[in-house]
Structures are given as structure tokens and as C-alpha cells.
């Protein structure tokens, strides 16, 4: 268990968080490499099905990153996303997941440092939670 390296899917919105991640990279900020970024145009593009699919395929955690409230490129996309993610967290809890496996965070284009901190923190959370409880399908 000590050498458990989680696999994390990070959905980043094109306008803020992806640029934020880029900024973190350009600034050479050190952070764990356990996550794979998927760029979406907006957090509202992240269908809960994406998250469930990631979890069903063995992701240990999913993080959705978007523009700060009132800062969405599409005006209201992140408001919708946060409602969906909140509801999805309730559903994941009902499944028996620890809701901490799904996280929503706001990272703007200039917040490379926040991106670094968020990802480090999230990776540590998932490491503490252990591997995903989803079992590989038998058939």
C-alpha cells in the first residue's frame, strides 16, 4: 500500500484551468505526476457520465477544474457544473464511494500556484483513501 500511486483524471476548462496548468508548467512548479489532464471547453461540458466512466475504468480520483464563479467564459457554465458535481457527489456517496474522490476546484488562468497546491493536495487525499473500490469487471 505504501507505494500506491493513484491514477487521477483531471478535467480542465479551456479558458482558465488549462491555462493555469500551463502556467504551472511554464513556472516549473513541482507537483506529483499522478494526474492526466483532459481539456474541455468548459466545466459544464463535463458530463457526469465522463466522471462515472473514469471511475468505472479504474480512476482513483477525478478532479474537475474550472473558472471561478462569475468568471466563466460562457457566463454560467461553472454554475451548472457545480450543481451537477454536487449532485454527483451525493450519488457517489450512495454508491459507497468516499465523496472526496471527486472534487471541484476553481483555478484561474493566472493561478499556476493554486493549481500546483490543489493537485498536490488532491493526490495526497487520494493516497490516503487508497485505491479505487471499483472492482474490475469479471466478464
Amino acid at each position: 500500500m505504501a507505494d500506491f500511486e493513484p491514477r487521477i483524471v483531471a478535467f480542465c476548462c479551456n479558458w482558465c484551468s488549462y491555462a493555469g496548468a500551463d502556467g504551472a508548467g511554464v513556472g516549473r512548479l513541482q507537483m506529483p505526476t499522478n494526474f492526466r489532464i483532459i481539456r474541455t471547453m468548459c466545466t459544464a461540458r463535463v458530463d457526469p457520465e465522463f466522471v462515472l466512466r473514469a471511475l468505472s475504468k479504474g480512476a482513483d480520483g477525478v478532479i474537475v477544474l474550472g473558472c471561478h464563479p462569475a468568471d466563466c467564459h460562457y457566463i454560467g457554465g461553472n454554475y451548472r457544473a457545480r450543481r451537477r458535481i454536487a449532485l454527483l457527489r451525493l450519488i457517489l456517496e450512495q454508491y459507497g464511494f468516499d465523496a472526496k474522490r471527486l472534487r471541484l476546484e476553481w483555478v484561474s488562468a493566472s493561478e499556476g500556484e493554486k493549481f500546483q497546491n490543489t493537485m498536490t493536495e488532491f493526490v495526497n487525499t487520494i493516497k490516503a483513501l487508497g485505491p479505487t473500490p471499483v472492482q474490475k469487471e469479471v466478464n
Partner: peptide, 26 residues
């Protein structure tokens, strides 16, 4: 009960088909 409401008829076909149990980590 969102899970029971939204999956009332289609749990068998959903992506995560059954309840899971967190085992706890380090």
C-alpha cells in the same frame, strides 16, 4: 435519494453497476 431516483430502472446498464466499499488507505 438521487441514485434511486435517477437509476430506478437502469441500474443494470449503468457504468458502475453495483455498490462499492471503500477499503481505506494508508
Amino acid at each position: 435519494d438521487p441514485l434511486g431516483y435517477f437509476y430506478a430502472f437502469t441500474m443494470g446498464k449503468s457504468l458502475i453497476k453495483m455498490a462499492v466499499k471503500e477499503k481505506g488507505g494508508q
